[in-house]
Amino acid sequence: MTDTTSSAPIAEVSSRRQVLLLASRYGTLAAFALLLVFNIAVTPNFLAMQTLYVNLTQVAPIVIVAVGMTLVIATGGIDLSVGSLMAISGAIAPMIFMGKLFGIESTGLAVTLAFILPVLVVMVFGWFNGFLVTKFRIQPIVATLVLFIAGRGIAQVATNGNLQVFKSPEFQFIGLGRMLGIPAQVILMIVVAIFAAALIRYTVVGRQIIAVGGNEKAARLAGVPVHRVKQLVYVISGGLAGIAGLIVIARNAASDANLVGLGMELDAIAAVAVGGTLLTGGKANIFGTIVGAFVIQLMQYTLLANGVPDAAARVVKAALIILAVFIQQRANKT
């Protein structure tokens, strides 16, 4: 005779786990689809090309930074410094092509250096984050808090706290230009996403990143160079933050060290969490991060377009993060 009393709870737990796993895997896509349907039905001019352009150009820097954040979180770390690194990159670039650093103004060489040097500088700062985490074994949230606080101060000191307004069509192409009708920054976003997805899926380094986040001790015993892997992801995160900083100032035709990248670390972490990457490490869902970034951007646009204040949008964003983390935890424990 079958013991139905014991099998029923097991079936119930299994069913609940399936629901949670489905929510964890497809919940972000479902949220994105619901936002699209709602906006098509309610928000005026949502399907206009201008609306599409605005949302794509707003989300591109978030995706670029969030991809770097995904790699860091996959190793079990976190990077709070990305917003400040954007400010540093955004402060240095105009100083180069406006002739304040090398005396070469608005030339091809100056613009080229303005694209390269700021990114290299913030990659060094990213290495510094990784150095604190690996050499001194400082918790990532504390180690990156150093540049979260000091980084924006560095940018402010470099510019004497002044707004840098400029007009440089060559440089601004990264933020305003189009190729075959597609915004240049969106193309750059796609390239970054493909690179990161290929890195995780097809390379030894990608497997090492996941191994370090999944079980650092086991990875070390297996011969994975844990310190080098951790330093690498912080360098990549710094470099991508630097690129995002260039996009933002190019789009605005101005660099303000007080505002560039402000709050970006929260948007990036939110995109990663909503996208399904475990904040405890051991997983990197690049596609989920991209969808998560679009959900956050579209949610914010939806609220603002329908008269909801920005403060309320931040509350909803926080609620989304809590819900995403809750579903992940329940799916793993059930």
Rank of each mutant, 00 (worst) to 15 (best):
L180H: 07
L120K: 05
A197M: 05
L117Q: 04
R17Q: 13
N55H: 01
A218S: 14
A11R: 15
V59M: 03
E12W: 13
V186R: 09
E12A: 15
I116F: 05
A319G: 08
T70L: 12
M299S: 08
V124G: 01
K333G: 02
D3W: 12
S15L: 15
V186P: 06
I209P: 01
G90C: 04
V19W: 11
L232C: 11
Q172C: 01
A273H: 11
L113I: 04
G263L: 15
F97D: 09
F287C: 05
A110E: 09
A268K: 02
A93H: 09
A184V: 04
N160D: 13
I73Q: 05
G130T: 08
I40T: 12
A114S: 14
P9V: 13
I96F: 06
P44D: 12
A312C: 07
R251N: 11
V260F: 01
M98N: 11
D310Q: 14
I327H: 13
L56R: 03
Q139C: 02
T302P: 02
A253Y: 14
A222C: 06
G177R: 05
S168W: 04
T28D: 01
I64H: 06
L36G: 14
G206N: 09
G90T: 04
L278R: 07
A91V: 02
F128L: 15
L180K: 01
Q300L: 02
N39W: 09
F97S: 00
Q185E: 14
N129Q: 09
Q164P: 09
A268I: 04
K135P: 02
G68E: 09
T277N: 06
T4D: 12
I141W: 01
P44L: 10
